[in-house]
Design a protein around this nucleic acid. Structure first.
Length: 540
RNA sequence: GCGCCCGUAGCUCAGCGGAUCAGAGUAUUGGCCUCCGAAGCCAAGGGUCGUGGGUUCGAAUCCCGCCGGGCGCGCCA
């Protein structure tokens, strides 16, 4: 590839100009302005700092020594940047590569099949999924897809908190409803779940012949019911999990007890005020935390630690947990627990991607209620309002840690269409071109590309060439929004090209070359959209 | 009060291991359909990058203070 050739040539020049600085990192950037060429390096500036010499002078020396077949003579600009311009043939080579690699374009085997686990959503089975879960589902699934694209073997996992106080509350709430007690009535459980769905569950339970006095039966029924409902929503969202891990199984298998024993055996715990405490302050926490409450029960973070021990033991050397920022205090605790067990788990295990909460706006006001859940907007609501593709694109298009305002009106506006269609429309337009030309992408790909001499064509080729690096960076930083941004820019350049040039000209060779470029754009759009779980329609 | 995150164009947001980083979309205004999909394209206006210091030849980017916002700070999960 052209980039590595430039890098190697620059490296050779560097070895001649400054042998003792041969370790200076060489960074090749893609200038934003086309006038600055295809690649640019600031090595001369870095070098000037170390050698205390004039950067422009160094740049001149380096540039004169940097030669290669695929690029023109480099130019010096600004304080000492070395700019490289590719020869047309080298720049257009990416088109043929894309048509050849198809869905593999942008993928890499850099991950070498390493097993990685991405845990996300992990909603308690106490109600329908809310928008925050939606953001997690969109982010987590995209991060998983990105890691797969980099050659990792990814397991998508959902952790069910199906044990503990909140499940008891669920059971009491359903039982109360089954007995005809409504929220606010006498006998309604303290902090019970007030959503309409509780009534649905109670009705279904009774319809199935359930006994309203059988609290365990109610509990099992309600959890199964809500799990099934969440699965339906996730399916509608296009997210599939490989493993559902149940908190209750950690108790059943004795893994929770084992953690407590292990912590005690390592001398990391102590008794105080009738409770058992863990010295999490030894690992950077503000204060020590309770492990076993004075009533004998464990706090939630014990099964959490036990769960993460299983992740490690299941062979996941790398784990990414996607959670809301409201859980950020658990990071220190879980890591502290793992360290205190002294199992050889790295200090920064696992990785976390925290996302801020989503505010839903509609009609100029924040929406806080939904019919079904009562106190929050559900994933289902969003899908119903703007469609799955728009929800997934929107929720992934912002940095995870910035607050996100989901403007439903904006997403529906413009004759009931969504902004994501800008990207999808570019894809559909190429499909339309092929439908009309009767062309076949693989045949078209054989065409000579020499005719593609326009600035827009060069810019599109540059953009396409960039794609594999965008994917690699997005995967490394667990930042799917990079993909969304890239796709929008690629689509914008395509629309611009489409309007400026007549693709289906009469000249056979030129037409074939332009169609080849369009086919490469279409392929890249499709590859990118699939990473974030958005469809690439042929018509719309 | 303490900890983490955030403050960039009217609005929603990228950029943040310093330089070629003042950007995108949207909104506003003005152009472009006898012609491959106008759900599109082209152009213009619009920001002392919250604020005050510091480091540096060079700071939206790094450090400190302050202001403003979010989230945590349970023997809840």
């Amino acid at each position: 590839m052209a980039k590595s050739e430039i890098e190697a040539a620059l490296r050779r020049a560097l070895a001649q100009v400054a042998p003792d600085q041969a370790e200076t990192p060489i960074v090749l950037e893609r200038p934003k302005q086309a006038g600055h060429g295809d690649f640019s390096s600031n090595v001369a500036l870095q070098l000037a700092k170390n050698l205390k010499r004039n950067p422009r002078e160094l740049a001149q020396q380096l540039a004169a020594l940097t030669v290669g077949d695929s690029f023109e003579r480099p130019e010096i600009a600004g304080p000492g940047f070395i700019n490289f311009r590719l020869k047309a043939g080298a720049r257009l080579a990416v088109i043929r590569r894309i048509l050849d690699e198809k869905g593999r374009f942008g993928r890499s085997d850099a991950g070498k099949g390493q097993a990685v686990q991405v845990e996300f959503v992990s909603a308690n089975p106490t109600g329908p999924l809310h928008v925050g879960h939606g953001r997690q589902a969109a982010l987590g699934d995209a991060i998983a897809a990105l890691l797969e694209a980099q050659g990792h073997r990814v397991t998508r996992e959902f952790y069910y908190n199906d044990a503990g106080a909140q499940i008891d509350k669920l059971a009491w709430s359903v039982q109360a409803r089954a007995k005809g007690i409504r929220p606010g009535d006498a006998g309604w459980p303290a902090e019970g779940y007030a959503g309409e769905y509780i009534e649905d569950i109670a009705r279904e339970y009774k319809a199935g012949g359930g006994d309203t006095a059988d609290l365990d039966g109610i509990r099992r029924f309600a959890v199964d019911y809500l799990r099934a409902e969440q699965d339906v929503d996730l399916q509608a969202f296009g997210v599939k999990f490989d493993v559902y891990y149940l908190e209750s199984s950690l108790y059943a298998d004795g893994k929770v007890d084992a953690v407590v024993k292990g912590l005690a055996a390592n001398g990391k715990t102590y008794e105080k005020e009738g409770a058992l405490w863990l010295r999490t302050t030894d690992y950077g926490d503000d204060k020590d935390r309770v492990v076993r409450k004075s009533d004998g029960g464990y706090t939630y973070f014990v099964p959490d630690v036990a769960y993460h021990v299983t992740k490690w033991q299941r062979g996941f050397k790398r784990v990414v947990n996607v959670q809301g920022t409201d859980h950020h205090s658990t990071i220190t605790r879980v890591r502290a627990g793992l360290q205190a067990l002294d199992l050889g788990i790295p200090k920064d295990y696992p990785d976390y991607v925290l996302h801020s909460l989503v505010k839903v706006m509609r009609g100029g006001e924040e929406v806080k209620i939904s019919k079904r859940a009562g106190s929050y907007v559900t994933v289902r609501d969003l899908i119903d309002w703007v469609g799955r593709d728009a929800v997934r694109f929107f929720l992934v298009s912002r940095k995870a840690d910035s607050e996100f305002v989901f403007d439903v009106d904006l997403a529906r506006q413009k004759s009931d269409e969504n902004p994501v269609y800008y990207v999808q429309y570019a894809h559909a337009r190429v499909c339309s071109l092929f439908a009309q030309s009767g062309g076949d992408a693989s045949v078209v790909g054989q065409a000579a590309l020499d005719g593609l001499t326009g600035e827009r064509e060069a810019a599109l080729a540059r953009r396409l060439e960039e794609y594999p690096e965008v994917v690699a960076t997005a995967a490394r930083e667990a930042a799917p929004h990079d993909i969304a941004f890239y796709l929008r820019e690629l689509a914008a350049q395509f629309h611009s090209y489409y309007n400026a040039e007549r693709i289906l000209v009469d000249d056979g060779e030129l037409r074939a070359a332009r169609l080849a470029l369009c086919a490469a754009v279409r392929q890249t759009l499709a590859n990118g959209l699939s990473l974030i779980g958005v469809s690439a329609p042929e018509k719309m």
